[in-house]
Design a protein around this nucleic acid. Structure first.
Ligand SMILES: [Mn+2]
Ligand SMILES: [Mn+2]
Ligand SMILES: [Zn+2]
Ligand SMILES: [Zn+2]
Lengths: 171, 171
DNA sequence: TTCTTGACTTGGACTCCGTCCATCGTAGGA
DNA sequence: TCCTACGATGGACGGAGTCCAAGTCAAGAA
């Protein structure tokens, strides 16, 4: 059961292949491997059927690569699981967002970005030049800055802050 | 020069027609009419060629209708100038944004919204239920909440805050 | 007033991002 | 091992926005 599938119907490859673009070892620190299995454990506990596709998407997001677009996630996932479809990546990302494991970030009118750093709340600093994104933690609670008389009866539940400017390279 | 154009080539209608959906008079207060001509004056001063299309787009935005999408602007403009094209609406909105006369607001992954209230800085409160948007003015300067050591060498120039919650109707 | 011309407008094709759906495959329990 | 409901697939589809070649016209010149 370990041989490469070379049947005449080689369309569906489920086995993972080594990532050709993963230069050098040690890119995963042990801490993150632990977070990884934690995540997979939590998902299994929530009744997820564990497929190779979901595992690979979760692995891609749990690296130190942050703020990827869905298509970037798909590209990285496809290096390990060549037949994974865009639809599945979108489905899985949507489920991870629903479960609160991943944060959806729409900073501009372009593609949404998916942020595995969903458990420690934070805000974003976006470079207007190159589009790069950094996590930041502003002092104080932005929600507290909105006085009751400015809430117009809304039940305010979340606040999203986006700082814009030029990164050192672009300045 | 005042008659209706009914030549055999009636494709291009430049004259404004009365707005069939504009119920009742007095929807424009005199203050806004002044802001209108101010805006047109400023644009003319900046070298704009004053076309009927640009005038109508500016008029639509200068009403008390705020936070319209580009297609909503196009629909309202087309009531007055039936042949106006989507491309021209997009072009004009982009120019108004460049000139700082209109603010582009991307609150979610949907269509951008165009906000004529660009001169008094403010933030937005968005209903997660129905998508309605209200202007709000939080206390304090959100920029000041980002300490220097959290700026990573960025030259931060703007901050956008979006509050999310349920409006009275949706709660 | 008429002429001239380059800025502006048009509509349709195109791209990008994302969703939907019928069909097929398979994880995991019996 | 077998079953089957849940998940994956890929291709069609839709919304939002951009681009372009061709046609039009605002406004200055004469
Ligand atoms: Mn982040
Ligand atoms: Mn506003
Ligand atoms: Zn940059
Ligand atoms: Zn609402």
């Amino acid at each position: 059961m370990d041989g490469v599938q070379v049947k005449k119907d080689a369309k569906r490859i489920t086995r993972r292949v080594p990532d050709p673009d993963c230069q050098g070892a040690g890119v995963h620190d042990p801490n993150q491997v632990n977070e990884m299995s934690d995540l997979l454990e939590r998902l299994r506990g929530r009744g997820w059927r564990m497929t190779s596709q979901r595992r690979v998407v979760a692995e891609v997001l749990d690296g130190d690569h942050v703020h990827l677009t869905a298509d970037e996630v798909h590209a990285r996932a496809a290096r390990r699981l060549p037949e994974i479809s865009r639809a599945t990546v979108y489905n899985t990302l949507g489920e991870l967002v629903q479960l609160g494991e991943v944060m959806e970030v729409a900073t501009d009118g372009r593609a949404k970005r998916y942020d595995p750093n969903a458990h420690r709340p934070h805000q974003h600093l976006v470079c207007s030049g190159c589009g790069s994104i950094r996590d930041v933690r502003p002092a104080g609670d932005p929600l507290a800055d909105l006085p009751a008389e400015e809430r117009f009866g809304f039940r305010v539940s979340a606040v999203q802050v986006t700082y814009r400017g030029l990164c050192p390279d672009c300045a």
